[in-house]
């Protein structure tokens, strides 16, 4: 069977090409990667947020504006969008623009057909209550909290701080400084009472307690962690600590 070529390679329509480029060029921003790693408890290098922190205010603005655009344009549909779009296109075309990027924002002639999903997956909400004394952290955000955080603005700034604290504790632990790591983790819990990386912090705390000779306490906390978060992404790591 002959492999079909890409439409992009064979089309002579500037508008088709521009639309195909729009579909191909989409990239996930650095902030999305940072948030994803944070939600998974994979608090890596703090540098992953270097770009995200700066980009947050702009993307937040764009998000609000674009949401409104989509909602409003979609509702009004053909009646409102076509004249506006064609006015723009007509104006650009009349001015001799050959570039396809001046095509209109236009709803197609038919009303949008509602998509029929095959299967709605189970929501990823994993509410993760904290061990004492750390208060209520969340590893995997609920649908509500995801939306809330998106609307709340540049939360990546806070996340960058959290990552930095966790990375600091991890580095101390790697150097064999269990006491220093514990102090750093305690400071983290005080500084971010509802921190998104609290579960990661708790796992490091278990390691740090173990390293500093408080093995009974480490085991106690590890068992408590597994009772509270048996399905956490980090549970396997804690189980390995207990030798399960």
């Amino acid at each position: 069977m002959r492999e079909p070529s890409r439409l992009r390679d064979e089309t002579s329509s500037a508008l088709e090409r521009a639309l195909l480029d729009a579909g191909t060029s989409y990239r996930s921003p650095a902030s999305a990667r940072a948030k994803t790693l944070g939600a998974l408890g994979l608090a890596g290098s703090a540098t992953i947020l270097a770009g995200a922190t700066q980009a947050a205010p702009l993307s937040a603005f764009a998000k609000v504006t674009w949401t409104k655009l989509l909602a409003t344009i979609s509702v009004v549909g053909v009646a409102a969008a076509v004249p506006v779009g064609y006015y723009a296109w007509h104006r650009h075309a009349g001015a001799g623009h050959a570039a396809p990027v001046h095509a209109p924002v236009v709803a197609l002639a038919q009303a949008a057909e509602p998509a029929v999903p095959e299967e709605a997956p189970a929501g990823p909400a994993v509410a993760a209550p904290a061990l004492e004394p750390a208060p209520a952290p969340t590893l995997a955000p609920t649908a509500g909290s995801l939306t809330h955080r998106a609307e709340a603005g540049p939360s990546t700034v806070t996340l960058a701080g959290e990552l930095s604290s966790i990375d600091g504790a991890r580095a101390m632990l790697a150097r064999g400084d269990g006491e220093g790591a514990l102090a750093r983790l305690d400071a983290y819990s005080r500084g971010y009472p509802r921190g998104r990386l609290e579960l990661e912090a708790e796992v490091l705390r278990i390691d740090a307690l173990d390293q500093s000779g408080r093995t009974n306490l480490a085991r106690e906390r590890a068992e408590a962690f597994l009772r509270r978060h048996p399905r956490s992404v980090l549970a396997a790591r804690v189980r390995a600590h207990l030798g399960d």
Partner: peptide, 11 residues
């Protein structure tokens, strides 16, 4: 929708 993509990526 564009505004929801980051959250859905995370999800």
């Amino acid at each position: 929708p564009q505004a929801d993509v980051d959250d859905e990526v995370q999800r």
